[in-house]
Nucleic acid binder design. Structure first.
Lengths: 316, 316
DNA sequence: TTGTAGGCGTTATCAG
DNA sequence: CTGATAACGCCTACAA
């Protein structure tokens, strides 16, 4: 293993000069700096993160905390995880996965990424003694990254109007959380701007719940209706039941999902959907958290990423 | 932060005695040992894993390497990950997720868990200079954990016979990998033991490929046929198309999947399936890998976990 | 601007 | 069986 000392010998300087070239290069004269840099390159030196962690009283570990049940979790978590991991790897950080909220503070970590937080979880956060960031919008001042839920459904609703669907119905998730309110707001605001009256249903986030809903109300739906769904799961159920009721998709009925990560392998129709760049969001969360750690906890603000509409087979 | 020194002072012994009580308790007299243990408990001392890592030239990090494309990956990876994480957390280990095979050896890690390995990947392994274990059966002597694929399809096939399905057809994945061969072998051996002639189809691991297959051959399938499928994805496609062709499931046609992790939220039928205890397998992999690291790379052998049949709506 | 000394928390080694 | 010492690789504080 190549150490600071090896580089120092190679460059004929002291260890401290090498250390400075790495951490505070501006404090070193250009000549010495380039000498050191050459030696570093020649020996392929990389700082030992563990030794750095020891002196800095860091662990180089952060926790990925998920407060949602992982069995019923959206498949996009895996993308979030890999995006997050990519951000960590660059900085030589590693993660521990935690599903049990009571174990957040056991062991050593420099900070936390918290996902799947619901309203009931917030009181937990104020007790945390390490920096943390949230995945998912909130309006209590906690740093977060999310996609712009309101914008997403605005895009979806405008698209439905542009495709000349006359009725535009929103099928949301029956959950009282900020992301759902934002998605509904995106839909409602867009319709009202065009003097159209919104129509909203809400169901649990399962494809079969959506199927039941369509089954029950199918006779009420006229042709030229587009369903804006708050998740791909719901959209898949809507689309499936529409076909069962002999509704023509996409000619007479349009369906737009949300998330854009649903496995084509399990659904037979290619769903038009609002896609979130989840990997990128994971990577941004990593960067945000590491920066927050570095700055000993200073606020990082809120980041809303633009989602995009992916046009596929379930809309005309 | 409570350190070794604090405990030593509290117990009126040297740091080394405290260290020994933790690592080699048999070398310390019972009196001193209990003194130290009391002090440890009183101060709620926990060893600093980073300092340990530094002296032991360890990083306390392992890499979770996935060689499969993560977008098309099975949803059960998330369960494997969380099981693996649970095993790591106990030993204060953290992980880095790696999807790019060329980056396996960049950065620091004490060992690797490798998943999604295909035949083409094996030459890579011999070049690795750190201990590793595989998720997924192989017959080249590499340590692994997997479920017993052969046993799983034996259970499925016997179950189909017991439910008096007269024809039993296997629908496999068209891939030349050990797990697939083992699943086919479990089916074939069981049928041949009962003097029944096997009938095998193979399709890509997508529900729509399975649907196409059923659509094409439906007229050839008599009543009282059970389809043993090599994955839940295939089973979902088979079941869906059977219904579309007006076949009665489960009365006239049975369908059995494999994996047992498929989201009920996206499929409307409750699938009978062979379930692998994936979380537990993840945890075993963690234990195996950490043990291997501790024993500086000594072989850990092969672990095959018993899968179980979950009886649900797609078989009578 | 550069170098020296000391220490982060732990453990191996060797002396007592 | 127990303790003092040195070392792991790096960085802060101070001195030159």
């Amino acid at each position: 293993m190549v150490t600071l000392s090896d580089v120092a010998k190679e460059a004929n300087v002291s260890k401290m000069t090498v250390s400075r070239v790495i951490n505070h290069p501006e404090q070193v004269t250009p000549e010495l700096r380039s000498l050191v840099e050459q030696a570093t390159a020649k020996l392929d030196y990389h700082p030992n993160a563990i030794a750095q962690a020891l002196v800095n009283n860091r662990s180089n570990v952060v926790k990925f905390v998920t407060l949602e049940d992982i069995d019923s979790t959206e498949p996009y978590y895996i993308n979030l995880l890999f995006g997050f991991a990519r951000g960590l790897n660059e900085k030589q950080y590693a993660m521990q996965l935690v599903a049990d909220p009571t174990k957040i503070e056991t062991g050593r970590a420099d900070g936390y990424l918290i996902t799947g937080a619901r309203n009931k979880d917030y009181e937990l956060f104020d007790q945390l003694d390490k920096p943390f960031v949230l995945f998912g919008e909130n309006h209590r001042g906690y740093d977060f990254v999310d996609n712009d839920n309101q914008l997403g459904e605005k895009i979806a609703t405008e698209y439905a109007m542009n495709r000349f669907y006359k009725q535009i119905i929103f099928i949301g998730i029956d959950i009282k959380e900020p992301f759902e309110y934002s998605r509904e707001a995106g839909y409602i605001n867009t319709l009202q701007k065009n003097q159209i009256i919104p129509q909203i249903y809400r169901v649990p986030n399962h494809s079969h719940s959506a199927q039941d809903l369509i089954h029950e109300h199918f006779s009420e739906f006229k042709k030229d209706t587009c369903f804006i769904c708050a998740s791909d799961r719901i959209a898949i159920g809507v689309e499936r039941q529409l076909r069962i009721e002999n509704g023509k998709v996409p000619e007479d009925f349009g369906v737009i999902g949300y998330d854009g990560v649903f496995l084509d392998q399990v659904a037979n129709t290619k769903l038009t959907t609002i896609k979130q760049p989840i990997m990128e969001m994971g990577e941004m969360l990593a960067n945000m958290l590491l920066k927050k750690i570095e700055q000993s906890g200073s606020p990082q603000g809120e980041v809303m990423i633009k989602p995009t509409l992916i046009r596929r087979g379930s809309t005309r």
